[in-house]
Design a protein around this nucleic acid. Sequence first.
DNA 1: TCCGTCAAGAAGTGCC
DNA 2: GGCACTTCTTGACGGA
Length: 288
Amino acid sequence: MDSGRLLFDSPSTSSSRSGLILLGSAKSDFQGFQGLRSAVAGSTEASGAFKIRPFFTSKYEIYEGFPSEKKRRLTSEQIRMLERSFEEENKLEPERKSELAKKLGLQPRQVAVWFQNRRARWKNKQVERDLDLLKASYDALLIDHDALIKDNEHLRSQVNLLLEKLQEIEKGASEPSRLNPADQAASSTDDLLMPLSIHQKVEDLLSTGSGGNASAGKPESRLPVEPLLLESGGHHAGIHCEDDMSDKGYNHCRDGVFTGHHHKLLQQQHEAALLIQWLDRVESTLLH
DNA sequence: TCCGTCAAGAAGTGCC
DNA sequence: GGCACTTCTTGACGGA
């Protein structure tokens, strides 16, 4: 270790480490002196709270007057004032820069660099926060998605059950002697005939389970196209499309494969619920 | 106590 | 002049 080392008191640094600043390491005695000069100059004007330790040697005086400066830690007082200024406005106009530099005993360039780095740190923190939000949003969507799949399976089994019942009823109804005239009249109404579009949906639901794509090109469905949130069975755990970062180029809710699939599941669930309602109506009309 | 490692911050560089 | 990226310095910390 070199013999020339300067320590001066600095209340603390922004990184909560010791307030000591060491200058003049073995590998950079020469540069160390530059740092000493700037450090002393800065601290003198900023807080005046520094002292040169006894073991500081006159070795550095050889280099006195050398123009360049070594980087050094800012004092806690300087950082406190810079932070306060940053909170007011994170951009720095030339006037404010000069004023701050004068007040803190720093070069205007140092103040500009500090603001530059501070903005970068703030942005990094912001990206971390955004990432956390995105993860939470994804987890909620995943839970909702799983719940929808379970609901869909349940509804499809109900549709199967009701279709079996319907087939039994239709068998019975084909025997004329077992129906009274009123029932025959009722069974002949359009209301009890399965609409072609719904029939197609049933086939889709039961064969592919993929949400009715097979009906493309078939007669237009009476079922609503937009995804509807069913009052029963849907969990829909708070998926929001808050574009609160649009000015930064982020969007939490970009359309993608996953959300597209989710959309289909919702639609499929709604169609199945309509089908069950219709089958219930047919069943009750035929039986009672 | 020394040494290596690491994180944080000050400053340099190049691009727009 | 701002920004992204990089380099360099500092100081803390743990292990030998």
